[in-house]
Design a binder for these strands. Structure first.
Lengths: 157, 157
DNA sequence: TATTTTTTTGCTATTTTGTGCCAATTTTAA
DNA sequence: TTAAAATTGGCACAAAATAGCAAAAAAATA
């Protein structure tokens, strides 16, 4: 099992790396009051244990031509476990789907879809989403304005 | 203005860095068939132009004790522009709110909230969310299972 | 098409960072 | 208090980042 309990220094490292994954080990070490070598060892341990799952560049969506973000609620027909699995597998493969969760409530799945334009979304909706296995209802909520993006996880103790 | 059009190499760099922000400049250079110095210069340019907004470590939520992810739809009373702004400002400050968007559709805002437990969510809901300025309705959708997390943006051309 | 201008590239030299090793220190447990 | 285990800091070496500069490529001009 992953978790071998995190001390305060580990949590500070995690918080720092969430905010800026390009911090130098030397910089990190200074910020947490350690010398570089134990600092690096801690980071490597966090990586190896799976607590740090990876490092990603955050892009400006508009700059790369992705003007539209849509939050999509989808209902799938129940009673068929297989169908739900087929749906999941299909969704994972779609590059336009940035995020997907099985959720409680009105919809069964909640997706975050990113496309260049409304026209592209229309094509994606009718050409792809509606044809996924078992889909019975789709509700599209268009992002009008981001209020908070890439919030870092609140690390407690 | 940011966008001075991206060539194929820039897009490959962006895709690679989305997937792994810790790639060495030397590794990056190899993957895009450039020598290290022009490669580094391109990355620096992408950073300076704001196309790359930052680099972040992705953490395993469970490992850091954040067992619950909730997608929250919130309606706020209309007619008061000020109130909507007050709401936005308040939301940005809440560490439990990882993501927030103004959206079209049934709800006005869609938040992603991360907390350690159901008890913590209850406290957050009644103690914080419901007391935000102008809130008239809240709908909570609990993430039961992640289907796709941290999908990288689909870079087109 | 030839020529000039601009942009981008690749190489080299220097500085900075990452990484493994080991002794010293601190922490934990008995 | 003592013994065992874990963690730390410093050192040395390897690797990477970075700046400068001349050559090559691309774009623009005539």
């Amino acid at each position: 099992m992953p978790n071998s309990k995190l001390d305060a220094t580990d949590r500070r490292l995690l918080a720092l790396l969430q905010g800026d994954a390009r911090l130098t080990n030397v910089e990190l070490a200074e910020k947490v009051n350690l010398s570089p070598s134990p600092c690096l060892r801690r980071v490597r341990r966090l990586e190896a244990s799976g607590i740090i799952r990876g490092y990603h560049a955050e892009l400006d969506r508009r700059s790369v031509g992705l003007e539209l973000t849509v939050f999509v609620g989808i209902k799938v027909e129940r009673h068929h476990e297989e169908q739900a699995n087929a749906f999941r597998e299909a969704v994972v493969k779609l590059p336009e789907v940035v995020t997907a969760h099985l959720v409680s409530g009105e919809s069964d799945f909640l997706l975050q879809v990113v496309v260049p334009s409304l026209v592209a979304y229309d094509a994606f909706l009718t050409g792809t989403l509606l044809r996924l296995p078992g889909v019975s209802d789709i509700r599209s909520n268009f992002a009008i304005q981001p209020v908070k993006e890439y919030g870092i996880l609140p690390l407690t103790d």
